[in-house]
Design a protein around this nucleic acid. Structure first.
Length: 492
RNA sequence: CGGGAAGUGGCGCAGGCCGGUAGCGCAUCUGGUUUGGGACCAGGGGGUCGCAGGUUCGAAUCCUGUCUUCCCGACCA
């Protein structure tokens, strides 16, 4: 089992791939662009999902489930949405195979079994959901509808990368319906806040909340809000989006309601989602050349205990102590594993759990028992220190909190250090080449300028930060007047 | 989809140009010695070379097609 990880400095992309595969998060599969999420990786996703799910429910949402397939006629109803996704859709055209008369043991698509209407494998579910909502909404009393679904979607991407961009991915998509514009806008920003809260406080990943420019907007949305995170190579990664859909889908699917005055009005909509891509963000943001670094609050395993012993007698003494420690840790809600497998020596285990990003490792040997101590190593800094076995539960619990905070602080310091202002085009271009990260610069607000900048530098406008201060300036490219700075970066 | 590289025991690779039915390291199994940062000795098992055709007496090796992955572009969460 070769466990060498390509160093970040040598090849950042390869480093990322190594982490995902050697950290046991996921593997490539036999299907182009689709990955197998392995138990360790899925445990991570489950933890993330559980926290988010609770946050959604705490903000009044309910889960439901809609079909994987969308009849083409429904899919094309909202024109912009359909156009935006058309070139990356998988389509079901037949419903039966038959044995190939010319080739024994092989199957062919039965031409007799062609569908009357093709089915689009959902790249997103607005269409099927709004078609359904039409039947759910008659009066203002039916509103709001606050529904979320956990699902898989398919987007036939040209170039895929584990977690960051796969042809099929897992996500949640919230779809809400409201009686007023104000309420829908409020929902949009509320869910953006939920995402930011989750990503910062659970994934320890600092984000910038902002609005997308028209160019970068979700197909079919009036406004797309987003949270943008920075990876260790300075590139931006969109970590979540929340869309204010206006009345676009209500009009496309003719969803109207009677208000209090008995007037028929179109319904206002939002949709919002985060995906397994978040795992990619997590990996890229915190990990190092030894392996994954996972935030304690969502790590599949928080603590691993490794025994060091000679002979059965010592092992038995260690076992007894460990049993007590495990009970203490579990009582405090800490997930802990005792790895006393005898097919690997301690050094091997140390390296292995570092690879997997387990936040805290406890080593306990005969000489520790004499002093009633253990060696506690933290993954984020790799510091090791002795700790008394008495009160180990509280000690570790506090350490986990400290690690969580430290990982966040580290990522935030890095990010803040990599946001730079540029005031001229020369400065802007030079910064992109010399210093990675986000660039805060004036833009004249036109899609044409944005396109030109993208063409020349590959940098896109990640967002217009929500807390932006207004200041007069001139666009770095066109020189036209501007009222505020926006954030540029090369992005994943 | 365009350009480049690659698919050989579980993993990482060699062999390929100059066809003659596979080899190395790690892992694995058995026994023993070990155990505070990826242990050591001895013995054993495991692959027909991505897949499908073709050339040939004979193909991992040559030819054609195809699938998948990685890197660079265009597209995107």
């Amino acid at each position: 089992m070769s466990k060498e990880i390509t160093p970040r400095a040598q090849d950042y992309s390869q480093w990322y791939n190594d982490l995902v595969i050697k950290g046991s998060l996921a593997d490539h599969s036999a299907v182009r662009g689709c990955m197998v999420i392995k138990p360790y990786g899925f445990a991570l996703w489950e933890n993330m999902r559980d926290v988010l799910d609770k946050m959604f429910k705490d903000t009044g949402h309910q889960n439901a489930y809609f079909p994987l397939f969308i009849p083409k006629s429904l899919f094309e109803a909202e024109e912009k949405n359909a156009e935006g996704f058309a070139k990356e859709c998988a389509i079901v055209t037949h419903y039966r195979l038959k044995t190939d008369p010319n080739n024994k043991g092989k199957l062919i698509v039965d031409p007799e079994a062609k569908l009357e209407e093709e089915l689009v494998v959902r790249p997103t579910s607005e269409a099927i959901i709004w078609n359904t909502y039409k039947g759910w909404i008659q009066s203002y009393r039916d509103l709001p509808i606050l529904v979320n679904q956990w699902a898989n979607v398919v987007r036939w991407e040209m170039r895929t990368r584990l977690f960051l961009r796969t042809a099929e991915f897992l996500w949640q998509e919230g779809h809400t319906a409201h009686a007023t514009k104000a309420e829908a806008v409020e929902e949009t920003t509320k869910m953006l806040d939920v995402y930011a809260d989750f990503v910062e406080n659970w994934m320890a990943l600092p984000v910038i909340k902002g609005v997308k420019t028209p160019n970068e907007r979700f197909a079919g949305a009036e406004d797309t809000y987003c949270i943008e995170a920075m990876m260790q190579d300075g590139k931006a990664l969109q970590a979540g989006t929340s869309h204010f859909l206006g009345q676009n889908f209500a009009k496309a699917f003719d969803v109207k309601f009677s208000d209090k005055n008995n007037n028929l009005e179109y319904v206002w909509a939002t949709s919002w989602g985060v995906s397994t891509r978040l795992i990619g963000a997590l990996v890229m943001a915190h990990s190092d050349d030894q392996g994954l670094v996972l935030p304690p609050k969502i790590a599949p395993l928080q603590v691993v205990i490794v025994p060091i012993f000679k002979g059965d007698e010592q092992k038995a003494a260690i076992d007894a102590k460990v049993t007590v420690m495990m009970a203490e840790l579990k009582a405090l809600g800490v997930s802990v594993k005792y790895d006393d497998s005898d097919n690997a020596r301690p050094g091997w285990k140390f390296a292995e759990y570092e690879m997997k990003g387990v936040p805290v490792r406890i080593a306990i040997g005969a000489r520790d028992l004499e002093q009633n101590i253990v060696e506690v190593a933290r993954r984020d800094t790799k510091e090791k220190a002795n700790a008394s076995i008495d009160g180990i539960g509280i000690h570790v619990k506090n350490l986990l909190d400290e690690i969580q905070q430290n990982i966040f602080n580290r990522a935030k310091a890095f990010r803040d250090d990599h946001i730079t202002e540029a005031n001229t085009w020369e400065e802007f271009v030079q910064l992109l080449d010399t210093k990675t990260g986000f660039i805060s610069a004036h833009w004249d607000g036109t899609p044409e300028t944005e396109d030109k900048i993208k063409e020349q530098t590959k940098a896109t406008i990640r967002c217009i930060p929500l807390d932006n201060k207004q200041e007069a300036g001139t666009c770095i490219l066109s020189g036209n007047p501007s009222t505020q700075r926006v954030l540029f970066a090369r992005a994943y």
